[in-house]
Design a binder for these strands. Structure first.
Length: 271
DNA sequence: CTCCAGGTGCTTG
DNA sequence: CAAGCACATGGA
């Protein structure tokens, strides 16, 4: 089984920090749905150990963002005691590089929802419209390809509620080429383009930019981050999404998205 | 029963 | 431009 020698990589925090939703923990291993396959992975003393089927080593490294210079990023976003505490409490938390299509569907499902429900939505969509894969003695459903998400009614069967209409419309608009084009755009242009899709506003567009399009300056502002930022940087006073996002990008710089992930996870787990 | 959840879109003032 | 509300669903 392939091993990856790496320090400062906390697999549990990374997987369970709400950036990906199709994973399960079984007998000491994480099984993560990725593109048309599964990555089975666990933490070891010296790093990570994984096994997968139909995915190259290069693809696994790309997904795990092993190309990030973690220490340098941490140094860059460690601007003050407040964020330093979030970083210290979540040492080894990383961002992943997801498939943009699944990321788009995931975060359209995320609006006015919660993590367990998003997981349920994606699992049902995969069972309905994805393929099945035999792996390690188990059957796993893969995520449906672009254009194969299913009808609006099927999406409603997946308990996506009022988001079913958005997803069905999105399914008719995007193509593999849509994401190829998107990946070539700047952060601002990619965000504008994404926000033309129904069900995609500022926050969802930022999540897609950060989690799947390498736009590390994106700073998604949800209710949790809003509270965390108001406490840490606005003297506890109420602010708004636009002010917070604008401040965060200028304050934390080109890796603001990493700061977001630490502050978000800190807020979710320690308050 | 009421409230709210990794928001967005639409309508009003 | 900001504020207010509906939108499905499910857990607290």
């Amino acid at each position: 089984m392939p091993r990856i020698e790496i320090s400062d990589f906390d697999l549990q925090k990374t997987i369970e920090s709400g950036q990906i939703f199709r994973w399960m923990f079984l007998n000491g291993w994480y099984f993560i749905g990725y593109r048309n396959s599964i990555i089975k992975i666990k933490q070891t003393d010296s790093g990570l150990e994984y096994e997968s089927k139909g995915i190259t080593k290069k693809q696994v490294e790309e997904f795990l963002r092993l190309d990030d210079d973690y220490k340098s990023i941490i140094k860059q976003i460690s601007k003050d005691a407040y964020v330093k505490k979030a970083i210290a409490n979540n040492k080894g938390l990383r961002l992943l590089r997801q498939d943009p299509w699944e990321c788009l569907v995931s975060f359209v499902c995320s609006s006015a929802s919660n993590i367990p429900k998003i997981q349920k939505n994606l699992q049902l969509i995969s069972k309905q419209s994805g393929n099945y894969l035999e792996f390690d003695g188990n059957r796993h459903a893969t995520f449906p390809d672009v254009g194969e998400l299913g009808s609006e009614n099927e999406l409603r069967d997946a308990k996506t509620g009022f988001r079913a209409r958005y997803l069905a419309e999105i399914s008719n608009i995007v193509t593999p080429n849509y994401f190829k084009k998107l990946s070539e755009l700047s952060y601002d242009d990619a965000k504008v383009e994404l926000m033309k899709l129904p069900g995609v506003g500022e926050k969802v567009a930022d999540c897609i930019c950060l989690f799947s399009l390498d736009k590390m300056e994106a700073f998604p502002v949800d209710v949790w981050i809003k509270r965390a930022m108001e406490d840490g940087y606005f003297e506890g006073r109420k602010s708004n999404h636009k002010k917070i996002a604008q401040f965060a990008r200028s304050y934390f710089g080109k890796n603001a998205g990493y700061a977001q992930q630490f502050l978000y996870h800190q807020r979710r787990t320690q308050g």
